[in-house]
């Protein structure tokens, strides 16, 4: 048993000056501000885009139903994105941290799996609705143009959508998911240490 006492004695030699509690209070306030800024940032970007699209509706008074549907779809896609993003933030931060390690790891694994699913689905929904919205929205304006110009504008838009869909979207999803996949793997590995 003298060996055990020895380890404890060595362990207890570690003493570090306790940081001033004021630092902690400052940190809490900083974190609050940072989270709020993040929330405001994405919400404001979304709202600004919606206001911009609504202005177009107001000023140009579209006649065709396709234009209106297009505008509505674009707005809905942005709203979905903002809501999903914001609820994901609170969903990630508001979890019970005082449960035991075993349950906590299970919770982390579930959270990460949910995050993986939500991110991919939200981004897909956003891209589909937004692309569809823009395509429908353009229809009325291209009708007023010559066939050639209309074809050029539609082709450019469709190519741009295709680049987003086949290049940027997979890239964003891959980037988001690789990190989560690695974390999931590690959390599962640690969790196995408890179930064994």
């Amino acid at each position: 048993m003298s060996d055990n006492i020895n380890l404890k004695e060595i362990w207890n030699r570690q003493e570090v000056a306790i940081p001033n509690i004021q630092n902690l209070y400052d940190n809490v306030n900083q974190l609050k501000k940072l989270n709020l800024l993040k929330l405001i940032g994405i919400t404001i970007t979304g709202i600004t885009t919606i206001i911009f699209i609504s202005f177009i509706w107001y000023f140009y008074q579209p006649k065709l139903i396709t234009t209106k549907i297009g505008i509505l779809l674009s707005i809905i896609s942005i709203v979905i994105y903002v809501i999903a993003h914001n609820s994901m933030l609170s969903f990630l931060f508001k979890k019970n941290r005082a449960i035991n390690n075993k349950d906590y790891l299970q919770l982390l694994i579930k959270l990460k799996e949910k995050q993986l699913f939500l991110q991919t689905r939200t981004l897909n929904t956003f891209f589909i609705l937004f692309s569809l919205g823009i395509s429908l929205y353009l229809f009325e304006f291209t009708l007023k143009m010559s066939i050639l110009l209309g074809a050029v504008i539609y082709t450019t838009t469709l190519v741009w959508i295709a680049i987003n869909w086949f290049y940027f979207k997979p890239l964003i999803i891959k980037k988001q998911n690789t990190k989560i996949d690695q974390l999931l793997l590690k959390f599962k590995e640690i969790s196995n240490q408890i179930s064994n």
């Binding site: 941290r97 005082a98 449960i99 035991n100 390690n101 906590y104 790891l105 982390l108 974390l183």
Partner: peptide, 16 residues
């Protein structure tokens, strides 16, 4: 116990 749970869970999450 409550504080040590929070501390150990914070450690477990730190790989992020």
């Amino acid at each position: 116990t409550w504080i040590f749970r929070i501390a150990s869970n914070t450690c477990l999450r730190q790989i992020q």
